[in-house]
Design a protein around this nucleic acid. Structure first.
Lengths: 137, 137
DNA sequence: CCTTGAGCCTGTATCAACTACAGACCGTAG
DNA sequence: CTACGGTCTGTAGTTGATACAGGCTCAAGG
């Protein structure tokens, strides 16, 4: 009988299965993003597929720029599935607006910066358009 | 005789003149971004126009997303003006590339996020496209 | 049986860039 | 005189990890 899918995983296995840093897993446990896993008689952490799934969820969310606070919220909604969709939509839309605001900020910065750099002669002189812009702003 | 321009400023005056947080000024002093200002007989910090100028430079640079490390570098070039332009150009161009990379990242995130949110029905159901995307990714 | 190496455990320190607070002192106006 | 607002220092907290120290355990190879 094939029970690979319920095989107990060590921490290093979980790290390999997800690509997550070993220490980061423990960090997520201490801050409550990941549950404290069951322990073996000797006190070793013992993981299984649900941990792999949850950690992947967390990593994908982090990859999309959700904060750990936001992820905590999303996980709560996953765990307690009632009225989920509308609430998730709110979290995601708020985050989307944050991301769009950041893009707008960075785009402004990019414009100012590239305009300024373009005025740079790049020679060995002590006069520099970038410095002037920063000094006179 | 009008000597407003050389009037000694207290820390709170410097904060008001620049819009910088009071505590941030001290922080910049401890990390060497701002010089330790002269003290009065009673040990109070005493600032003048050069501090205002320098702090404004720092704040404009921060606003453009330069790290304190990068700003330290720029300030060094301002203080010791020899071969400035070419070196400043290098710092600014590297930073510009960082900014562009961040914009690219965030744009990818924005696309994924808005596509996912668009599939959201937003109703009171426990099924949610966002959660599914994060779970199955 | 013993050693070796890999893995486990905990706790603590470090990073950026601030922010905030505690506890004490000072200086001036009413 | 006392209240208020300012100053000083030192230290802790924030976010999201990452790294290391010091010690324990386990499985495989000789």
């Amino acid at each position: 009988m094939d029970n690979r899918s319920v095989k107990a995983l060590r921490r290093v296995d979980l790290a390999r299965a997800t690509g997550c840093n070993l220490e980061t897993i423990r960090y997520y446990e201490t801050v409550g993003i990941m549950p404290d896993p069951p322990r073996t008689a000797k006190g070793y952490r013992s993981y299984d597929d649900i941990h792999v799934k949850r950690l992947k969820f967390v990593m994908r969310s982090r990859d999309l720029g959700f904060s750990l606070e936001e992820i905590r919220g999303l996980l709560g909604l996953v765990d307690d599935r009632s009225q989920t969709c509308a609430q998730v939509q709110t979290v995601a839309e708020t985050h989307l607006e944050d991301v769009q605001a950041k893009i707008a900020d960075l785009t402004r910065i990019e414009r100012v910066l590239s305009e300024t750099v373009a005025r740079c002669t790049g020679d060995a002189a002590p006069e520099c358009a970038v410095i002037d812009a920063l000094l006179e702003g």
